[in-house]
Design a protein around this nucleic acid. Structure first.
Lengths: 144, 144
DNA sequence: GAATATTCAGATATTTTAGTCTTAATATAG
DNA sequence: CTATATTAAGACTAAAATATCTGAATATTC
């Protein structure tokens, strides 16, 4: 089996989206995230630290510490998160894995995949996470 | 990084498509496939055996032996191959990995992903490999 | 029947991804 | 200043995916 994004990346998307629901400057602990999202604690910790190093999140130690967005929610799209965790090789590689597949030398589904891939790109960039958070009343998160 | 199909599955798609170019009843050795497609010999062998067990290919031992399609090329789609190797969980799972994501309780990109996923399905079933082979003059295969 | 070319089956090895554990650093509250 | 709650960092383990190896089975040709 194989998904379009790695598990790490899925967790990252979920976590950042959760943080986008919070008010600016409010810090959220790994403990809360792990409970609400049902993600293994230490694994999530590593992902959040990674996103922090890359500037998408900010963090603060100590009691009242935790993680928050590293920039305004309106400046973050899902694409930024995918880019940071999985990279975006899927944007320019053949869906059947042919190394030589190009516009000049296309595989049997080259064009169709190109369209779909553009659709994925659009899906990832067309809304920022502030807009997403607005239309989202935490349906997917486990109650506290 | 993460691709939509596993490497195994990519190799399977490539191999079956290559076999579809051959005339009915012609057997092709792993050696030829491995050379033309640049896939590790023993890894490809395992994949072909798997596809044979599942009926998509047929095989014959001995000199003049090898692999061929297990049913008429017009009855095989890319979907069959993906189904056999990776499975098709991606057809009904949330792209962000939310376990509870459903139509009633959708994630932020539920609808968009549903459309794209249907597009992928269409891409995989709309042509059989006989049609594909017809319009394909082996551009993606390394010369012998 | 012997030699050879192939697939078959299963064990092993390697690499990547996923997940865990432990200790240190740091901020807060009292 | 001390106790405590947090993140940071890195080592470690586990599982899955990818790849390799070896010997057996089988079909063909001579």
């Amino acid at each position: 089996m194989s998904l379009i994004f790695s598990r790490q990346c899925e967790y990252a998307l979920q976590a950042v989206l959760y943080l986008a629901l919070k008010s600016h400057n409010e810090m959220t602990s790994i403990k809360e995230l792990t409970k609400r999202l049902d993600i293994p604690y230490h694994f999530l910790a590593k992902i959040l630290q990674d996103l922090t190093r890359k500037g998408l999140l900010s963090s603060l130690k100590g009691p009242t510490g935790g993680f928050g967005l590293g920039m305004p929610a309106k400046d973050i799209t899902l694409f930024h998160i995918v880019e940071a965790i999985d990279g975006v090789d899927f944007m320019h590689s053949c869906v059947m894995g042919f190394p030589e597949c190009t516009g000049k030398n296309p595989c049997a589904v080259h064009e169709k995949w190109a369209n779909l891939r553009d659709g994925v790109y659009t899906m990832l960039v067309s809304k920022n996470i502030a807009e997403m958070a607005k239309n989202m009343r935490k349906p997917e998160y486990q109650s506290a």
